[in-house]
Design a protein around this nucleic acid. Structure first.
Lengths: 122, 122
DNA sequence: TTGACATATTCCTATATGGGAATATACCGT
DNA sequence: ACGGTATATTCCCATATAGGAATATGTCAA
């Protein structure tokens, strides 16, 4: 089997650097294809193709205005990605957090004195 | 040109669902290949290959212990992904937050217009 | 209608993939 | 050294890509 399609989900769509650039560029604003191409220094057909992929997975929304089509990033579709990555947050947070985590771990299986196991998230 | 290599960066490595499963499984714990394979219902060679990719981009760390090799997720390597996704946070946060953000932006520059594009980072 | 502009699609190709099967490599205890 | 266990690598292949070039589709204006 080959690699999954770029249109199979947001993870695959976003793996391409140009597509990430496009998403960043279109965050909060609405732009026609030509302007995207110019702004990012890409060929128009290339941009159209990337936008197709992004649209297929819902990462961008499109609206027609006369002869041009306006695209904008649909941030909601990026949330799953963020959520997945956030899952690992507690494993990278710096010293303070990590020390606390360790203390918890020790408390759990070590000295029953310190019971921080109920400490809260966030 | 073809698609970028899966080992070119975390984004590409993480595009593969199995690899995400492996990363989740190895978050905070250290496990030998065989156990990963069994736990996730994958073939051993397949797991080895995925681990190779993950190791190449620094998403997992490996340690030898006798005849087995113990892998664990290196959460730090997931941070860039999280950071990139977080960039769009302000565009998906719900009404209240969004309104608040706008209010802040307005207050900062005293502009009567609602111009999100100019608001600053936190 | 015709022409000009804006975008999308098609065709081509080198390159990489992930899975399965088979095999190689490394390390252990005896 | 040997057999057995734990991982890694190789080979094969159907599939998908991204970019470039060329072309098709669509829309406006006169």
């Amino acid at each position: 089997m080959a690699r999954a399609s770029t249109t199979s989900d947001a993870f695959n769509a976003v793996a391409e650097p140009r597509r990430r650039e496009i998403l960043s560029y279109l965050a909060g604003i609405e732009r026609p294809v030509g302007e995207i191409a110019e702004a990012l220094g890409l060929e128009q057909p290339s941009v159209s193709k990337h936008l197709r992929v992004l649209k297929d997975v819902g990462l961008v929304r499109m609206r027609c205005q006369g002869r041009q089509k306006l695209y904008r990033t649909n941030a909601e579709a990026i949330r799953p990605l963020h959520a997945w990555a956030a899952t690992f947050e507690r494993y990278w947070q710096h010293q303070l957090t990590r020390v606390k985590a360790r203390a918890e771990a020790m408390a759990r299986q070590g000295s029953p004195q310190l019971d921080l196991s109920k400490s809260k998230e966030k």
